[in-house]
Simulated assay, not measured.
Amino acid sequence: MTPALIVLAGLPGTGKTTISRELARLSGAIHLRIDTIETAMRARGETFEGARGDIGYVVAYGLARDLLGAGHCVIVDAVHGWREAEALWTEALRGTHARLCRVQIVCSDPAVHRARVETRKSDIAALSLPTWSQVQGRDAIPFDDADLMLDTATLSAQAAAVKIVAELGP
């Protein structure tokens, strides 16, 4: 597979991380998870207040740039709920000849989505998962022009990952 930056976006509990892991398994892409980066930074005292709220994204896209430059495919798994994120992936791609694939992940069934949010367990020791109320109140701006829109109310993580691989081509 030619180098690609695969940006998975969506609200918490829609399945981004599960899909990212399956996609990494199928394709050999490197999975960068904002939750992992931000949790590690919080453990070192980062507060993410004010203008520094995007620091986990800045770190992820800095790493993505290095990995893309070395010829790897990279998955960035995050909410991406703000317009300024585009500048970060644009910079990560600059000069790399890697392809961009933006994937919007949704769960169109509110009952399924809520059940996922309310029953999931964190696989990161210090990560506090959001409540259903917090997910509903999250100000997330979906991609206007996503390359793929995947609905995890009707697709398994494996089927979603296969669709992404098909979108990327050989």
Rank of each mutant, 00 (worst) to 15 (best):
R52E: 10
T2W: 02
K163Y: 00
T47R: 15
L88M: 13
A43G: 11
G56Y: 04
I37R: 05
G81P: 14
S156F: 04
H97I: 07
S133H: 10
V76R: 10
G45K: 01
L32F: 11
E46H: 15
A98Q: 13
P12G: 01
D145M: 07
A70M: 15
L26P: 01
T18S: 07
R42S: 13
V106C: 11
C73V: 00
W89H: 15
S20L: 01
C107W: 08
D35Y: 04
P170F: 03
G15Q: 05
E118V: 13
L26R: 14
E118G: 10
L68F: 04
T154K: 05
L5M: 10
P12Y: 02
G56N: 02
E38F: 00
G13Y: 00
G56S: 04
A111G: 06
R138T: 12
T131Q: 08
L100K: 06
L148A: 13
S156P: 08
M149A: 09
S122E: 03
A161N: 07
H31S: 14
A60E: 04
L63T: 01
D123Y: 06
D109A: 00
G15Y: 00
S20M: 05
R114W: 03
R114K: 11
H80P: 02
S20N: 07
T96S: 14
F143R: 07
K163H: 09
P130L: 03
W132N: 07
A166Y: 04
G45T: 05
G13C: 02
P130A: 00
T96D: 13
V74E: 13
D147M: 03
R52D: 12
I75W: 14
A153N: 03
C73M: 15
E84D: 11
I124E: 06
V103L: 12
I34W: 06
G28L: 04
R116T: 00
R65C: 10
L32P: 03
T119E: 00
F48H: 09
K16P: 07
L100R: 11
V74Q: 14
G56Q: 04
I34S: 06
V135H: 08
D54K: 12
E167T: 11
V74K: 12
L63G: 01
A43M: 11
L8N: 11
